[in-house]
């Protein structure tokens, strides 16, 4: 065993505090009332209004139409996160499969074309994308929220590299075993890619969960509100002498953190298991 070095732990502890403290502050502050926060600043100790605040955040109807509850926003965010993760995995896996296993002209050029789009963030093409969706009549729909962002250079790249590392003999064995392109993909590549899928799922779920700009532009109907927009809109209420509902914003932020944490915890286990057990 290696001797425990205090300095290593000091760095670790500092790091943990640095990352963890804001979360604790948010959690603790969310259990105090808005007035207390406004007058005393943030809290590191629990207060007495937690239950009430969370209940209100989850169930109270808000927004201009008065129909938006925390639960609805949570649901919308989940749909965004899952839709992104699943959609991107399916799309980038099939794209990478075609790039690696089908011999067609310009495959390499095509791949690099896809790859360079990594350099372009969503914001660059947000106007044309909006225009396309508007023309297709997909504003204010889940399809419009999710589909335009599905093409994923990152995912395609990862899966391409992974498929390239799968030995050719496996494909040849499958061909001799009478597996066509589709069966090979489903029976061999997909099960082998589990770990990659878990990794991409984590990344893409959080990417979808945290989307702010695109839903903001794409939807005007409040029933498509996501948590990210909810937090923002709570803090925007600076009308007259009204105090913003800090406590609710914090509560919402804490709620917004839970699903990604669950996803990471669940899939990380699978991810690590896959990493240690796989041998191609």
């Amino acid at each position: 065993m290696q001797r425990v070095k205090p300095l290593d732990h000091l760095v670790l502890i500092l790091g943990a505090l640095f990352m963890g403290l804001p979360v604790i502050v948010a959690l603790m502050s969310s259990t105090h009332s808005a007035v207390e926060i406004h007058s005393n600043g943030l809290y590191l100790t629990p207060g007495g209004d937690g239950g009430q605040t969370y209940e209100k955040v989850l169930t109270a109807r808000g927004g201009f139409t008065g129909d938006v509850t925390g639960l609805l926003m949570l649901g919308n965010s989940l749909i965004m996160g899952l839709g992104f993760a699943v959609g991107k995995i399916v799309l980038s896996m099939t794209a990478a499969y075609a790039l690696v296993y089908f011999r067609f002209r310009f495959a390499t050029i095509l791949f690099w074309a896809i790859f360079t789009t990594l350099l372009l963030p969503l914001e660059v093409r947000i106007m044309p994308s909006y225009q396309v969706m508007a023309t297709l009549g997909l504003l204010n729909s889940y399809t419009g929220l999710i589909v335009p962002l599905l093409a994923s250079a990152t995912g395609t790249f990862f899966f391409r590299q992974f498929f390239k590392s799968v030995p050719d003999e496996l494909l040849e064995a499958a061909r001799i075993d009478g597996a066509g392109p589709w069966k090979f993909f489903i029976d061999v590549l997909v099960p082998l890619s589990k770990t990659m899928m878990a990794a991409i799922f984590i990344i893409m779920f959080i990417y979808g969960w945290n989307q702010y700009l695109w839903p903001l532009i794409m939807t005007t109907d409040e029933s498509f509100y996501t948590l990210m927009r909810g937090i923002k809109s709570i803090l925007q209420v600076w009308v007259g002498s009204q105090i913003p509902d800090y406590n609710e914003a914090f509560a919402l932020a804490v709620l917004a953190m839970i699903p990604p944490v669950i996803v990471v915890v669940v899939f990380q286990r699978m991810f690590i298991k896959g990493l240690t057990e796989s041998d191609k």
Binding site: P167, A173, R175, A179, D187, P191, L192, K194
Partner: peptide, 29 residues
């Protein structure tokens, strides 16, 4: 196609399907 030639092949690196049990590996074809 290889599958229609009525042959079976044994590869140098075995080329077993890593995610399938021994039984499934043999039964796949």
């Amino acid at each position: 196609d290889p599958a229609d030639r009525d042959i079976a092949m044994v590869f140098q690196n075995y080329a077993l399907y890593p995610h399938m049990s021994v039984r499934d590996n043999m039964a796949y074809g």
